[in-house]
């Protein structure tokens, strides 16, 4: 399964315009659940990609291609995780036209941990917190101009994030 860059966003904007033209513009927004915004849709979730057990298979399922190492991808991860249940990971990139970022934890039961869609205007820098079962290589993948670039770092995990 592959991503299509943000067709949904455009659809939504169209609906929004329609709603305003239709006379809803006078409503106070605040915390009012604006009807024109569709919520997160589980259909977007790339189920196949999250089932894969190797870097190659996960990238194939997610993007349909392999990644090449690049020093334009930066991966900030601790050398020794304080606890495998909560490992802060930041990915950043100086590459242009980034459309996606993915983080793979190679020793986890399923390789792909998280994938992010980056629409135009959003920076290719994402921080999140991940679980790691044991000492592992972590791979950050950035999709730029239709190609994949990656950076890899090893994180030592002494208290695993899967055991409880």
């Amino acid at each position: 399964m592959m991503f299509s860059p943000d067709a949904s966003g455009r659809t939504r904007r169209t609906i929004l315009k329609g709603a305003i033209a239709g006379g809803l513009a006078g409503l106070t927004l605040g915390s009012f659940p604006f009807p024109a915004f569709a919520d997160a849709d589980a259909k977007q979730w790339p189920q196949d990609a999250f089932k894969q057990k190797s870097e190659a298979d996960a990238l194939k399922a997610l993007y349909g291609k392999p990644a090449e190492a690049s020093d334009k991808v930066s991966l900030d991860a601790p050398e020794i995780a304080e606890n495998g249940a909560v490992v802060p990971i930041t990915v950043d990139s100086s590459l242009p036209n980034v459309t996606g970022v993915a983080i793979l934890v190679l020793e986890n039961p399923f390789t792909l941990a998280a994938a992010y869609k980056i629409p135009e205007g959003t920076k290719p820098a994402v921080a999140s917190r991940l679980k790691m079962a044991k000492t592992t290589k972590v791979v950050a993948v950035v999709e730029s101009g239709g190609k994949l670039y990656s950076a890899t770092k090893e994180v030592k995990v002494t208290v695993g994030g899967c055991g409880g």
């Binding site: 601790p78 050398e79 995780a81 917190r129």
Partner: peptide, 10 residues
């Protein structure tokens, strides 16, 4: 120091 950096992030 290594722990401190993770704590700051968290």
């Amino acid at each position: 120091e290594g722990l401190r950096k993770q704590w700051k992030a968290i």
